[in-house]
């Protein structure tokens, strides 16, 4: 095996004049240097190890922090989702509440309308039944008057009974009977109400004349008429239900009066209406 010769002056072999003490010293220096280097390396390694440990600790801390943040973010995300769901639920509940409120209002209005309709039907029923409750013409006329006063709110009215083509006033309210003149069927406001066949006629242009005239007619037979001249103080105008009542008066009042007159005439107990009865 080829062994390289060390370069001159660099050989480890001690010079020929070197003493044993020198060698020992040299060895000691060499060892010291060796150990010094080892210590230095070991110290550097320890420092690096410390730094690495520190770094690991930092990374672990960072990792923990990030993990916690991630957890926190997830919780926030969950909460936000929950809030959104609750908001949606709230909106839905509000909408449903509004819907229910609207439905309740509508039901109340409907109930009130039904109550009002029921009240009107009761009035019509009572009025009709009372008109037909007696076969005495005087009772029927009195009932017609009560109906006009109490149900329609007529403060001044005249009830006429037909005698041939004459309309004789037989009952009044709010004006003396003596002050009311007879009317002729087909003439004037009261007598003219039979022309045209309307259930009742409303006139407003003549302030002294009647505001409403209700002809009482059974088929083609004229039975009488009702004229309203004024309403009660608290009644400002006729409403749609008053018109219903007047239509009923026109039909049922005429029938009731005709039946009562026929019955009275047949029994002879009460003579037909005449001017003398006024």
């Amino acid at each position: 095996m080829d062994r390289k010769r060390p370069a001159r002056g660099t050989s480890n072999r001690p010079p020929r004049n070197t003493t044993k003490a020198d060698l020992v010293e040299k060895r000691r220096e060499l060892l010291e240097t060796y150990f010094e280097n080892g210590r230095q390396i070991a110290s550097e390694l320890v420092a690096e190890l410390d730094a690495a440990r520190k770094r690991i600790a930092e990374v672990e801390d960072e990792n923990t922090r990030l993990r916690m943040q991630l957890k926190s973010d997830t919780a926030i995300r969950d909460l936000l989702t929950k809030i959104e769901a609750l908001e949606s639920e709230r909106r839905e509940l509000l909408s449903r509440t509004s819907e229910v409120e609207q439905r309740a209002r509508s039901e109340i209005e409907r109930a009130m309308a039904v109550e009002s309709e029921l009240s009107n039907l009761a009035s019509l029923y009572v009025a009709t039944s009372q008109l037909h409750a007696s076969l005495d013409p005087r009772d029927v006329v009195a009932t017609l008057g009560q109906l006009l006063l109490q149900f329609v709110g007529a403060g001044a009215y005249v009830v006429y009974s037909a005698e041939g083509d004459r309309l004789v006033p037989v009952a009044t309210e709010g004006m003396p009977l003596e002050s009311v003149t007879e009317a002729i069927v087909g003439q004037g406001i009261v007598g003219g109400a039979f022309i045209g066949g309307a259930p009742f006629v409303v006139r407003t242009e003549d302030r002294d004349g009647p505001m409403v005239v209700v002809p009482l007619r059974v088929g083609e037979q004229v039975v009488g008429a009702v004229a309203v001249f004024a309403l009660l103080e608290q009644k400002t105008e006729l409403d749609p239900f008053d018109h219903e009542l007047l239509r009923m008066v026109s039909a049922q009042g005429a029938t009731a009066l005709a039946a009562a007159r026929l019955s009275a005439a047949a029994s002879g107990s009460i003579p037909p209406w005449s001017s003398a009865e006024r």
Binding site: S119, A122, S123, Y125, V126, A127, S129, Q130, A133, T143, Q146, L147, Q150, F151
Partner: peptide, 12 residues
């Protein structure tokens, strides 16, 4: 005193 009004009140 009016039977008609009385009946209506009783109805109501």
């Amino acid at each position: 005193d009016s039977p008609m009004m009385r009946q209506l009140l009783v109805f109501a």
